[in-house]
Every structure is written in structure tokens, then in C-alpha cells.
């Protein structure tokens, strides 16, 4: 498959011009290989593996027996978050046909915050600490799946077969959920509010490790459902009419994808809290880097880029002595990307 000439492709060509023909042949072969999505994915995978390796093994001063498993747990959480956010954002952008949207816009994270607020409001801060976190999580996932399902049916039942309307409704619901949460939070006593607020801040290191097991199960299950869908997802990129014309059951596929997105967003929000722009960042980097529209390429690329950003970024920041700042940096960069995309869209 050919892709647009990237920077990688153009630079060696210009530099290779005065070289001997044999050497130029070798370089051209490298250039051609680099243009293939499979090769680019392999490079991303190598980079991701390297990030994980340095994060786990570099700079251990005390006991390896303690440090390695400790760091592996952190890495496992970051891997889960990378899969959850990368896959959910790419899927969401495919069904909405829009590359500046992310599930956060549908009000998923706001619902998460609302559920937790309601629990603390109704039962006190102790409830959040004493309820089995797995049970809590399952309730949240259920709420999110029901929420997205209802929203979808409700909008579609009014024969407005427009995904944009769906997103607009999502934004309105998001504002509603946030407002209700904020009202309830204002009525809480300060101690309970402090406990609650603590769980809202995105933190890629202060992961809730009790949820690792059930999150892994959820992510593996979603992946198992999503993998056979990739070709149908490619067709969805053509838009609703073309997808139906080509025999895809558009409504059913979109509903299924929305459920998968709901589960994945639940995984990532439960583990690290709401993150606004990280998904947007890795999804758009993935489209750019992999040079193919096919989900068989863009989905893994988004996940691998997520791993590189999270694990590699965490490692670098820890070396700089800024271990807790990763979410700030990622949201900052992601926010800039978001603004750039909005501006570029406006120019077109």
C-alpha cells in the first residue's frame, strides 16, 4: 500500500542523490519499507517495548525483588489505560466520522464523576472506601453502557439518524451531569469532598491497583470483540449511506461500538480518572504515523503510541524529577493539538 510521501521518505532521497547507485538502491529499499504500515507498526512496537524495558529496569537502587514487580504493576496499569483510551477514541472517531471528537465529549467522564458523587452524597465518604471496588466498577460500567444505549435509542427513535445530533445531546448531558455533580459537591461536608476530589484528578501513577484484575478482563474481552470488526469499521469510515449500501448493518454496528467504547472509557476513568485530550492526541498521532486508514493498523498504532507516551513519558519525567506531572504534560500537549486541529479545520 502506498502512502503520501512523509518526511522520512523525502529526506533520505534528497541526501542520497549524489551517492553511488548501489547505495542509493539500498536507501530506496529502506524508504519503501518505511512507507509500509506493517513496518511502521513494528517500529512503534519496538519503541513501546523499549519504553517498558527502561521504565522497569533502569535506575533500580534497592531490592530488585521489590522494585521489578512494583514497577510491573505500574506498567500493567499504564498498558491497560493506553489500550482503553487509544481504542475507545479511534472507535469513537470512526462512528462519528469526526477526528476532533473523543468519548469525553459524549459525557462519559461526567457520568463517572456523577455516579461517584451520588455514592458519596448518599452514603458518606466511608462508602467509597468500604464498597468492594470491583462491585463499584461493575455498577459504573453498567451505568455507562445503559446511558450510552439509552441515549442512542432515544435519539434514533426520533428518526434523526444523525450522529452529530447524538454528540450534541451528549454534550448537553455532559453539562447536566457536571452541573448536578458540582451542586452535590457543594452540599457535601469538606472532608467527604476532599476524598471525592482526590479520586477525580487524573494520575497515571496513583493507579487504583485493586481494579487491575477486572480491568484486564474487560480490556481483553473488548479486544476479542473488536478484532473481528476491523474490516467493518473500515467501511464505516465511508459514512452511513455508503456503509449501508455496502451491506453493513450500520445501526447495529454503531450500537455495539458504543457499548465497547463505554466499557473502555469506564476502564480508563476508573483507573486514572477523567483525561480530556490524551485520546485525541494518540488517535491523531496514530493516523499521522501509520499512514493507513485501516483499523487493523490505526488501532494498534494508537495503543502503541499511548504506551510510548505514558510509559516513556513517565520514565523521562521521573529522570527529570517531575514524576507526578505526566498527566499535566500530556493534557497540555493534547490541548495544543486540539486547538491546532480546530484552527486548521477552520482554514479549510
Amino acid at each position: 500500500m502506498r502512502t503520501e510521501p512523509s518526511v522520512i521518505e523525502r529526506m533520505p532521497r534528497a541526501a542520497a542523490a549524489p551517492d553511488a547507485p548501489a547505495r542509493r538502491g539500498a536507501r530506496e529499499r529502506v524508504v519503501v519499507a518505511l512507507a509500509r504500515p506493517g513496518v511502521r507498526l513494528a517500529l512503534l512496537a519496538a519503541l513501546a517495548a523499549a519504553s517498558v524495558a527502561v521504565f522497569v529496569f533502569v535506575g533500580i537502587e534497592g531490592s530488585w525483588a521489590f522494585a521489578v514487580p512494583f514497577r510491573l504493576r505500574k506498567v500493567a496499569a499504564m498498558l491497560l489505560v493506553a489500550v482503553a483510551i487509544g481504542v475507545s477514541t479511534v472507535l469513537f472517531q470512526t462512528i462519528t466520522g469526526n477526528r476532533i471528537l473523543s468519548p469525553a465529549i459524549m459525557g462519559f467522564d461526567a457520568l463517572y464523576v456523577l455516579i461517584q458523587t451520588v455514592v458519596v452524597f448518599a452514603f458518606g465518604a466511608g462508602a467509597l472506601a468500604t464498597t468492594d471496588p470491583n462491585l463499584m466498577w461493575l455498577v459504573e460500567v453498567g451505568a455507562m453502557v445503559v446511558f450510552s444505549g439509552l441515549l442512542f435509542r432515544w435519539v434514533f427513535a426520533r428518526s434523526a439518524r444523525s450522529v452529530h445530533l447524538l454528540v450534541l445531546v451528549g454534550i448537553v448531558f455532559g453539562v447536566l451531569f457536571r452541573s448536578v455533580s458540582s451542586l452535590m459537591q457543594r452540599m457535601l461536608d469538606p472532608a467527604a469532598f476532599a476524598v471525592l476530589q482526590d479520586s477525580f484528578f487524573a494520575s497515571f501513577t496513583g493507579v487504583d491497583e485493586t481494579l487491575l484484575g477486572i480491568s484486564t478482563v474487560a480490556v481483553v474481552a473488548v479486544t476479542a470483540i473488536a478484532v473481528p470488526l476491523v474490516r467493518r469499521l473500515d467501511v464505516l469510515l465511508l459514512g452511513e449511506s455508503h456503509a449501508i449500501g455496502l451491506g453493513v448493518d450500520h445501526r447495529r454496528t454503531v450500537t455495539l461500538v458504543l457499548v465497547l467504547v463505554a466499557v473502555l472509557v469506564s476502564v480508563s476513568t476508573a483507573l486514572v480518572g477523567p483525561v480530556a485530550f490524551f485520546g485525541l492526541l494518540v488517535a491523531n498521532l496514530a493516523y499521522l504515523v501509520v499512514g493507513s486508514f485501516r483499523h487493523a493498523a490505526t488501532l494498534p498504532a494508537a495503543v502503541l503510541l499511548g504506551v510510548i507516551c505514558l510509559v516513556g513519558g513517565q520514565f523521562l519525567l521521573e529522570q527529570l524529577g517531575l514524576g507526578t506531572a505526566l498527566s499535566v504534560v500530556i493534557e497540555f500537549v493534547g490541548g495544543i493539538v486540539f486547538i491546532l486541529m480546530l484552527v486548521r479545520k477552520g482554514v479549510r
Binding site: M1, R2, E4, Q93, G97, N98, R99, R231, R232, D234, V235, L237, L238, G239, H242, L246, G247, V248, Y287, F293
Partner: peptide, 22 residues
Amino acid sequence: HLTARLTVRDLVGFGRFPHGRG
């Protein structure tokens, strides 16, 4: 209007989707 960047051959290839599930 397409959000993804496709070549002409990619697009025409989608016409075969109903015949082999992709």
C-alpha cells in the same frame, strides 16, 4: 465527504466488501 484519506484504489476496493466480508 470522507474523514479518512483514501486512494482511489482503496475506495474502489470497498466495492468488494459485500463479496468477501472485506
